[in-house]
Amino acid sequence: MARFHQLRVTAVDQLTDDSVALTFDVPPALREEYRYDAGQHLAVRRFVDGTEIRRTYSICAPAPDPAAPEGPRTLRVGVRLVEGGAFSTYAMKEVVVGDELEVMTPAGRFTLEPAPGRYAAVVGGSGITPVLSIVTTLLAREPDATFCLIRSDRTAASTMFLEEVADLKDRWPDRFQLVTVLSREEQQSGLDSGRLDEERLGSLLPALLSVGEVSAWFLCGPFGLVQGAERTLRGLGVPRQRIHEEIFHVDDGLATPAVPATAPSHSTVTVTLDGRSGTWPVRDGESLLDTVLRNRADAPYACKGGVCGTCRAFRVSGEVRMDRNFALEPEETDAGYVLACQSHPATDTVELDFDR
């Protein structure tokens, strides 16, 4: 189960005018707990006037070697400032070296186990963060792998991890291909400026590589970009199981939630969490996660928006309705997994297992 621990900040690196990278020290006793796969994320929390604030940030460093005797000595995440963001503003303006923050152990399934093959990604803005970990880990561990990265940013000055990505080109010039699209700035060479929409991707991707020979596609960034890239790939004949998605921002004007479910009048939820079980009544209108949190403060969650997947649970029995889902793959929902933060009971009793 994911748990929070106090970790000390050892570096605050300014990436752009509106983004920073935070590095945390992991003490020896916690290194095994913080062992992570390339592409996973961390939840960070703080309390402001008694209110708990949690935010999720992807790890941008290469994953530790699974054969190594211990986990990582440090963790590095990228944080982009969100207008009015309670945590991103704090990270940008107040966090300094020596501060201690509460950091959850790694989670997430937007990952890649290094293996021979061709891989590619379409990312927008801060969506580069988990993909940077994925591509660096892959190229370092698997000599028979190649990676094509198509990234979209507003301007060169707003591009996160610009130097780190350039270093990948220098280290693996024959195995790493980079294509950069700037939406608000002309480049001296390369592609014209403009949005990376479906029409543009439809002509760009086949010109760059043999789309059907790519072993796995990684799409990460704002909802509109990710959904547009998925539709483009499906239109080019890419099977759904080869497409992996992680959404960093959902524009509610683009992503309309399902009609909120009306729960039966006396629903209860039974939950297994960290080896212990309990049964509690569900209040009108609340999600199953909120029901659990009223009784178990250790229930896992980060965003409560159906995006990060931290609250993933297995539906043992009963039926639920999810308001929206931007984290689980179709095969996961088919297997019975749900997002507790978006789930409401559709039967009198529901049983969830967070431990599976």
Rank of each mutant, 00 (worst) to 15 (best):
L168S: 14
A340L: 05
V226S: 03
T51P: 10
A229E: 09
R171P: 13
D348K: 07
R315I: 10
A297Y: 02
G278T: 06
A145G: 12
R118V: 11
H266D: 15
G278W: 12
A255N: 09
A207M: 07
R356Y: 10
R283L: 15
A299D: 08
H5I: 02
T180F: 08
T74Q: 00
L75T: 00
T136G: 14
G202A: 12
L7T: 02
G253A: 11
T279V: 11
L42K: 02
K169W: 06
A68Y: 13
H5Q: 04
F24Y: 01
S267A: 04
R46A: 12
I128Y: 10
L182H: 01
V26H: 02
S19R: 04
I150Q: 13
L201K: 04
A140N: 07
T347K: 00
E213D: 11
V44Y: 00
V79S: 00
V226I: 02
P72H: 07
R231L: 11
W280P: 12
H249A: 08
L178G: 08
P239Q: 05
G190Y: 07
L138A: 03
D290L: 14
D25Q: 05
T105V: 01
A21I: 03
A2M: 12
G306K: 05
Q187P: 05
D174Y: 10
V259H: 10
D144K: 13
E164V: 11
A255E: 09
T159C: 13
G212H: 09
V131D: 10
G78R: 04
